[in-house]
Structures are given as C-alpha cells and as structure tokens.
Amino acid sequence: MIKEALARIPLQHMSIVGLILFILLFAGAVLWVNRKGSDKVYKHLEEMPLDLDSDATARGGVNE
C-alpha cells in the first residue's frame, strides 16, 4: 500500500517542490530576522563572544 502510494508520487516535480519550500523558508527567515524589536536582541547576541567578563581565560586567570 505504502509502496504503491510512493510509486504514484510525481517525483520529477520534486525539484520544483523543493525550490518552493526553500523560497518560503528563505522569505520566512528574512522576515523573521527583521521582525519588529529584533535590533535589541541581535545587538546583545552579536556581542556575546566579545563579553570579556565571560572570558576570564583571555586575561590568563581568575575573573573575580
């Protein structure tokens, strides 16, 4: 039953289906990252690796 169903899927259209899915995902991601109020979040996030308070090792020792 499952095999028969699979055999009837028009597989030649899969590239188009995938392309449409990708465009939707891409558009969704672009909208998502530009959502209202995201500036503050991303400002905080992009600074995370640079937060020296969290990288005591960089100064070779204890950070207290």
Partner: peptide, 21 residues
C-alpha cells in the same frame, strides 16, 4: 573570528539566515 579581531560578527541577521538555509 569575532574573538580574534575583537569585533562582533558583521551581520547577526545574516548568520541566522545562513544557518536555516
């Protein structure tokens, strides 16, 4: 790279799009 050059990533938004795509 941000650690080495002491700069935040060029575009965090782009990194999010980069990841999902």
């Amino acid at each position: 790279i941000p650690k080495a050059v002491n700069r935040p990533v060029y575009s965090y938004r782009l990194s999010v799009i980069h990841f999902w795509t």
